[in-house]
């Protein structure tokens, strides 16, 4: 009987290229030769959406793999799924979810283009608690749950763009420690409750050191973030932060000082996201106007800024358009060295 092994290796690779990611991961488990073949070239998922709802979880790669694991009345069965999962219908969705998710993201060679991680609701605890009898303390149990969602190894999951909406900051923190900081190019996150998500980022030194991280968008920060930490992310070329209260003039000065450490700055926007819990502040200026100041040691390049009622906007030497957040290509400006002890310097 003729089997697939009669086909030359380069043809098998063509077959692999026709497979979707999940099938590729299954294919690599068939034999040693195929495992090597799939692993040799990086696996890549362009988009992966993982969404947690009240009683269901959805995985979707937008390329044909889409499964909704739904828990009805605590029965925990898979009720809605793509054609390939029809066979599994009615089976325990918790186990299936774990199997599918592990198959998708627990491969060291995998790179995810954009990971959308949306927590519309708390992660159903029954899904993610690790069977660890020693994890009696609440926090330990929380850690245990997360260890089952992602790679058990820290800093392994390669994601280029992360779009995350979490309910509480620790969820975001645990995501950060699973991601490989050297692969991340843009972060967009939102945290509903608790302290703001930026603080979690400030506590993740690997990310802050990553020069790949160029774009950062943070929404719904509950409290004004610690502006003194802003210099830690000033190497990002595009930063957009939504806070719950207006910045004072002192705070604006502090932001400006932090930005002078980044000669590659494109744009920073800090805007107020009003909510019932936001504390109204007196208006700072009626009319928006731009001001500018040169970088210390290099008067040819400047930072411009303006403060309107609900928005403080800063533009650096790399600013090149109206909507910088969507602009991928940046013109070549030689990278300049940041001044030392920037907080001690006085700027115009």
């Amino acid at each position: 009987m003729v089997d697939l092994s009669v086909v030359p290796a380069h043809v098998t690779e063509i077959i692999v290229e026709h497979l979707d990611v999940l099938s590729r991961l299954m294919f690599r488990k068939t034999c040693t030769d195929f495992r090597g073949m799939v692993d040799r070239d990086h696996l890549f998922i362009k988009n992966l959406h993982i969404t947690y709802y009240y009683n269901s979880i959805e995985i979707d790669d937008k390329q044909g793999f889409q499964v909704n694991y739904q828990d009805i009345g605590g029965l925990g069965t898979l009720v809605q799924c793509d054609k390939e999962h029809e066979l599994h219908k009615g089976k325990n969705f918790i186990e299936l979810f774990k199997i599918d998710l592990r198959a998708l993201i627990l491969n060291r060679n995998l790179t995810i283009g954009t990971l959308h991680l949306i927590h519309e609701h708390h992660v159903p605890t029954s899904i993610l608690i690790r069977d660890d009898p020693e994890a009696e303390v609440a926090n330990a149990r929380i850690d245990g749950r997360i260890m089952n969602i992602f790679n058990d190894l820290e800093n392994q999951l390669r994601v280029e763009n992360l779009v995350a909406r979490m309910r509480v900051p620790w969820e975001l923190k645990k995501v950060f420690i699973r991601l490989n900081p050297n692969s991340i190019k843009s972060l967009k996150f939102e945290v509903d409750y608790g302290s703001n998500g930026l603080r979690q980022l400030f506590r993740s030194p690997d990310f802050l050191r990553s020069e790949q991280l160029r774009r950062l968008t943070s929404f719904h920060s509950e409290e004004p973030f610690d502006l003194r930490d802003l210099h830690k992310i000033a190497h990002c070329s595009v930063i957009e932060v939504k806070v719950m209260r207006r910045l004072t003039e002192e705070q604006i000065e502090m932001v400006k000082a932090a930005l002078f450490t980044n000669p590659n700055l494109n744009q920073l926007k800090i805007s107020v996201s009003w909510s019932p819990r936001a504390i109204p502040m007196p208006e700072m200026a009626e009319e928006p106007f731009w001001r500018s100041a040169p970088y210390p040691g290099n008067p040819r390049i400047r930072i411009s800024w303006r403060c309107r009622n609900d928005e403080a906007e800063f533009r650096g030497p790399r600013f090149s358009g109206e909507v910088a957040a969507e602009k991928e290509k940046e013109e070549e400006i030689p990278v300049l060295r940041a001044p030392r002890n920037f907080f001690d310097d006085e700027f115009d």
């Binding site: 099938s23 299954m26 068939t30």
Partner: peptide, 17 residues
Amino acid sequence: CKKVANMAQGKTPAQLR
């Protein structure tokens, strides 16, 4: 190759073998 790839959709490793 596409035809062979389609045969792999939704199969476990054992089924693929």
